[in-house]
Nucleic acid binder design. Structure first.
Lengths: 347, 347
DNA sequence: CTGAAAGCGCTAACAG
DNA sequence: CTGTTAGCGCTTTCAG
């Protein structure tokens, strides 16, 4: 007997035709059995399942998807993966999607409009059944989503949203949150409060800013609006804020930052520059990231329910996919936020 | 003329057949043009591209995948999404994959073996061209990966790895890192160092622990091994460690924690309990998460190059997919780590 | 309850 | 340089 020079055994895929031949039935019967179709006798079903197990049969989703015109996958585009808030939201989406038998294809725009466009296209071509998006800061034009809306493929925005016809959105009331944060600082006695933010192109940030302005108008006679705009929320940007504070004629005694990470870096930089927090300067962040409780003094903030937002986004899109909600009836879900008062802003 | 009662215009998909008919050529020509096949005249190519743009043609990946027997997607299974380290690694993978025209399907095992199994199966059926895995803490059995290895679908492990035939791995030298962290504490004068870890089932943690033991044996006559095992790295577990320290007959003066987050929570709890850090107790973490620089005193740690690990994982798997590396020649990539000394461990 | 056969949309070998 | 044609593997209508 000849020795083969085989390097290993490549398990070949078995198809429903293989099973059909093996059992002497038609491929249709195999397909129906595997899908638990009611009109197949229990006996044959069992036979088929058995044979499938033995041969290690695995469905070929390409073929199935092609035939069914659906993929059981949901696309997600987020600005970035490596943020505590976003990865928590994704966790929530993933949980819901998986339970319902859907896979997620996740991609990041890195805050760039071009990349968001590209990802939208790719996900469309990959045949996702629905798309969940949190917009990039840069994005100003929304035509790339037309491929989805034109074909009535469910499209949902969460957190960083835009109001497009028939697209549900999931958000918090950012204006109210910004208002409350500012109101809180005022009530703690701050008389010269600045707001630190970035990407005012996005409504989340714009609305927090208007909440800030609104509170100043309403509660304070001496506070005047001051926006310190930073490029992003990285540590490097914190120094800009400290510079602003140091060069301010009227001493700054309150800082409302649109993001916890940056707020934390600002605290560090201020402490280093010799400021007393909260005695001289009170500060409040946004998101309630875990890091708020690591910094000392612990950071007051707005609690922003990421996991819940993710679960709701998943549930909402699933109900559209199930047809239990008509896509026409686009809803807007507003989640409750909460003011969390910690050391950094207390009198 | 009759009014239609149309509710909206559902854009119908145009196929290569539509384009073929429209231009009076064969579907094959359309396909080739779209794929920039060399043997098509520039003129027809342009015509086709033009028509494709006009009609809003989009390739149907289901059909294409079925025909090509590949999906241009890579599956990823991670223990959890919402960890700074993991999301950074994913960022790296995603960057490389996208540049090469691959999509990622990401799923999380939540540290559960059952979920990891399920995800492995789903990703297999989804037809991923390759799979990248960082193992769940729970996982003890690796047979679920056989579907991949049997069919020679590239499978790579990163960070939390297991040694399977023909599967490349990407890791750091955890034993050396654990050794260095411990050595550092000893050289700073610690005489009773404990190690805090979790999931010793996973080699990453086991190896750090052996590094710790090795250093104790080598450098110290009075230090004795003490492992404080926690369930996970959450804030809630920090108290257990403090309890251990408080009830220790011989005062603990050094803590080597396998994870930065937990280390940070331990610092907070120790400070609260009245300990002076680093004077009374020196502490070092692992990962170099951003949070290490938020806590005060800033946390010494081992730098663990997550983004680089992700990029390498992506590159390695791509080279297997391109065939530029034979899958048989499984490599093991060991990334450099670095001891980062900050305030929390200084004499 | 089961089978035959068409079709999902694209690709590629083969032929011209 | 272009067309014909045979799949890829599964689903589903229509018949029996």
């Amino acid at each position: 007997m000849l020795r083969t020079i085989a390097q290993g055994f490549l398990k070949k895929k078995t198809t429903i035709y293989d099973l059909a031949k093996k059992l002497g039935v038609s491929p249709a019967t195999i397909s129906r059995s595997l899908n638990d179709h009611p009109s197949i006798s229990i006996k044959t079903k069992e036979k088929v399942l058995q044979a499938a197990k033995e041969t290690g049969y695995r469905i070929n989703k390409f073929a199935s998807n092609l035939s069914l015109q659906k993929s059981n996958t949901i696309g997600v585009i987020v600005p970035r993966l490596n943020s505590d808030f976003m990865s928590t939201v994704l966790s929530g989406i993933e949980k819901i999607a998986n339970n319902a038998g859907y896979n997620l294809i996740i991609s990041q725009s890195l805050e760039q409009e071009a990349k968001e466009k590209f990802n939208t296209k790719t996900l469309f071509e990959s045949g996702v059944d629905a798309l969940l998006v949190s917009l990039a800061n840069e994005t100003k034009n929304y035509e790339h989503f037309a491929t989805f809306t034109e074909r009535k493929i469910p499209l949902l925005f969460f957190d960083r949203v835009v109001d497009l016809p028939n697209c549900p959105t999931i958000i918090i009331d950012n204006e109210a949150a910004g208002y409350q944060a500012t109101e809180h600082l005022i009530k703690q006695g701050c008389e010269n409060i600045i707001h630190v933010s970035s990407g005012l192109n996005r409504s989340v940030y714009k609305l927090r800013y208007s909440g800030y302005k609104k509170a100043l108008k309403e509660f304070s006679t001496y506070n005047r609006e001051q926006l310190v705009e930073v490029g992003n929320f990285s540590q490097a940007e914190a120094q800009k804020v400290v510079d602003y504070i140091q060069s301010s004629k009227q001493p700054v005694d309150g800082v409302f930052v649109s993001n916890d990470n940056l707020a934390v870096y600002i605290i560090k930089a201020l402490l280093k520059a010799g400021y007393k927090i909260p005695d001289q300067i009170k500060i409040i962040g946004f998101n309630n990231d875990p890091v708020t409780q690591v910094i000392s003094p612990e950071l007051s903030t707005i609690d922003y329910p990421g996991y819940k937002m993710g679960k709701l986004a998943g549930q909402s899109i699933l109900s559209h996919l199930n047809g239990s909600i008509n896509i026409e009836s686009a809803d807007q879900i507003i989640l409750k936020h909460e003011l969390i008062i910690r050391e950094s802003s207390q009198k």
